[in-house]
Design a protein around this nucleic acid. Structure first.
Lengths: 206, 206
DNA sequence: GTCTATACAGCGATAGAC
DNA sequence: GTCTATCGCTGTATAGAC
């Protein structure tokens, strides 16, 4: 059976209309939230009509779910890339924090962070994806923390899961608090403090 | 000149219609966000018409600002109450964390947290109040941390301001991540880990 | 202070021509 | 795959009677 292939292997940059829609609507969802943008906004920016939008994504719930799933997929790929780099736990966590910093630097919030705030108003499929995103991140973080602990490169207090949760929430919250002022420095400082609290090599107390 | 007095000194519980409106709309704003509720929702729950709502709060922006300012006022009062109790820095921070825990236990998000996510879509007056709320909290936290440090009850790494920011963001983010699953235990664990990272009396590393 | 009635814009979504 | 045109609904807001 033929593989599912939506793009040519020589993929260029956002060639097709569906990709442009996902890009534009994705940016709006990361800055204004699911309830903060409309098909009219997306259509106007791309230069097509609302009707054409509905041709590619039948409903807003479908569009929202597609954007969210693409985002979660990209994040999982980034985690895999970090793992593949063969770094120690402290450096892997630092690169994890940088994933979030990159989002904020693009004047966006973590999609799952902003959508978590709107959670009760979202279609059920999107709710599930958000929960899965957080659970995936917690598992990944807990694994890295556990490896750092057993390898002696990290000495955190609390269980791997607790520390993972603190780190995930801490980074999401640091983005949220930095968001109104677009204060990259405040995010970076919080991220550094959170990582330092794990008792890495440069941060052992005596 | 006479003092501005909107309630009798013997204030009972949410007697007037304006207070009931603020209560109901406030709960909706803390669970669904500013863009996630309508005048129709509030009117239906209270049992009056939308027109009556507009009589008390002329526009949604006015209503939203009133709710937000009342919330910020209440939070400032809670911080003053903590100060007035004459506790040491570690216990004051613990009570601060409990303020947030109480909100989550009521099945709500921190109003300024959920609104920070919607920041770009909000009326300018609400945006200003959100920034002021965060700034107030940071100042209060930085002061308490500074007092704990000079008094020897806290030994955090980083400047008072950095640690304050990490704590504020950490608690807001812990609420946000716990929100989809209404997972009080995960919030409590993160709060405990954040406070423990400040090097209080029970958490000195050696 | 509350109501009925309504204005008006925007929303998500659909039909059908090209 | 894109368009024009339009539907039905909901949103915020207003007018005016009681």
């Amino acid at each position: 059976m033929p593989a599912v292939r939506k793009k040519p292997a020589t993929s260029k940059r956002s060639t097709g209309t569906p990709d442009r829609i996902l890009d534009v609507a994705g940016r709006l969802m990361q800055t204004r939230g699911y309830n903060g943008f409309s098909y009219a906004d997306v259509a106007a920016e791309i230069g097509i009509t609302k009707a054409s939008l509905h041709h590619h994504f039948s409903t807003k719930a479908v569009l929202g779910a597609a954007i969210l799933e693409r985002y979660a997929r990209g994040f999982r790929a980034a985690l895999a890339a970090i793992d593949a780099a063969g770094l120690g736990a402290p450096l892997r966590l630092e690169r994890y924090a940088r994933l979030h910093a990159k989002v904020l630097r693009q004047d966006r919030l973590c999609l799952c962070g902003i959508l978590a705030a709107e959670y009760l108003t979202l279609p059920a499929p999107m709710q599930r994806t958000i929960r899965a995103f957080f659970a995936d991140n917690e598992r990944w973080l807990a694994r890295v923390i556990g490896e750092g602990r057993s390898g002696g490169s990290l000495h955190p207090q609390g269980s791997d899961e607790q520390v993972a949760l603190m780190l995930l929430g801490g980074l999401e919250g640091a983005m949220l608090v930095a968001w109104p002022l677009k204060d990259m420095a405040s995010f970076a400082a919080s991220a550094r403090r959170l990582l330092a609290s794990l008792g890495g090599p440069a941060n052992r107390r005596g």
